[in-house]
Amino acid sequence: MQDRIDVSKAARGAGMLEAREIVFAYGRGRDILKGFNMSVKAGERVALVGPSGCGKSTLAQILAGMLRPKSGEVTIDGKPLPKKGFRPVQLIYQHPEKAVNPRLKLGKTLTEASSPDDALLAALGIEKAWMDRYPAELSGGELQRFCIARALAPETRFIIADEVSTMLDVITQAQIWELLCDVVSARGLGLIAVTHSAALAERVSERIITFDDKNSPPIK
């Protein structure tokens, strides 16, 4: 893997999402991540593979700018992630039913970040009739489509898909990944697929980063 980036180049690192020497611990607990490095280019699809509990989801939140690491930094285009405003790195979650407000009709949820155009909705297989429904009335696969559409705002540069299909059956899983990969490549976005399944990673990514052990993050 060619993950070590020349520092002089990284300063300009346009179109790159980079994590450098990330160390993280919850509260005063032990370090979950000890100096993790990775980078993803725009238009690239990378998979992060490891068993549950290995720190993948924590890393996903750090890459999205939702958690701040104890040390190390995440940069986009060579600059630190913005602290305020729209996050250019959007996270899609494992449980879509928790990622939408159960009391809001889905039409409202969908337009929270931007107003996705009809072409995108059609590409994601979102039906107009679903807009007036509440989350409890749709299945996990259908809700996940909304979460994907919501995350695909014009300012979005990278998508992190954190076990987005783990709770879905294999057919829906294949559906979701097919449309996610299509949309991401059509827009030239970078994709980080976080998963426990090596077979899935093989299918959806161009490059795989493995978390082999809880305490020793990768990069060989």
């Binding site: 700018g65 939702m66 990622a99 809001l104 929270e112 979460c147």
Partner: peptide
């Protein structure tokens, strides 16, 4: 999580309170 998502869309605290917390 939907609050975290809304923050990620750059929504203000007030907006989140009105849209998500109040209901």
């Amino acid at each position: 999580q939907y609050i975290a998502a809304a923050r990620g869309f750059g929504k203000s605290r007030l907006w989140i309170a009105r849209r998500h917390v109040l209901p």
